[in-house]
């Protein structure tokens, strides 16, 4: 208390105003006790008024508002939890459907592949058979051509030999020429 009053007085002294020896109104009006009764009376009236305003109207109302808000917040949170659970469920169902669809697709692909493979195998076999038939035919044709070619060479060789002998002035012995050509061809 002492510090407070000296503070106040010091302030007043610094301002060069307060005359402590003088009348009450030169000092602190707070210490003019003639007005205390008035102030206390109105203060008590005010406090009682505020108390009734608060306890009868304001505080129950604010408490109700806060409770209602708390309630609706927790309701909303519960609803959100619900929706979230549903979303998770839906996601799981979606994932399951996706998995099923994928498995089904795999199965269909495998079946299609097997079918195609079977067709392919048949076609390849057939093609192979045709190819080997054609090859055999061609080989035969080549063999005939080769045999024909050798005969021709023999004939040409015999004729050529006879002509050469004739030119040299000899008498061509057909049997000996044939034997010689045959012997050469073998060698």
């Amino acid at each position: 208390m002492a510090t407070e009053t000296t503070h106040g007085d010091g302030l007043a002294d610094a301002m060069g105003v307060a005359e402590h020896s003088g009348a009450g109104n030169a000092g602190m009006p707070q210490l003019d006790f003639s007005t205390w009764g008035n102030q206390i009376f109105w203060l008590v009236v005010a406090l009682i008024a505020i108390y009734f305003i608060l306890s009868r109207v304001a505080l129950p109302r604010i408490a109700a508002i806060l409770a209602e808000r708390q309630g609706s917040i927790s309701n909303d949170i519960a609803a959100a939890e619900d929706l979230k659970a549903k979303a998770v469920e839906a996601e799981a169902a979606y994932d399951q459907a996706l998995l099923d669809a994928r498995a089904e697709a795999q199965r269909i692909i495998a079946a299609a592949q097997a079918d195609i493979q079977a067709d392919l195998d048949v076609a390849i076999e057939k093609a192979d058979a045709e190819i080997s038939a054609k090859t055999a035919e061609s080989e035969k044709a080549i063999g005939e051509i080769r045999a024909g070619a050798i005969e021709n060479v023999k004939i040409v060789a015999k004729d050529t030999a006879k002509e050469i002998i004739a030119v040299l002035g000899g008498q061509a012995d057909a049997k000996a020429v044939t034997a010689a050509v045959t012997a050469r061809m073998k060698g």
Binding site: A18, P29, N38
Partner: peptide, 8 residues
């Protein structure tokens, strides 16, 4: 008159 404001 800094204290006059407090006069009742």
């Amino acid at each position: 008159h800094p204290m006059d404001q407090f006069i009742v």
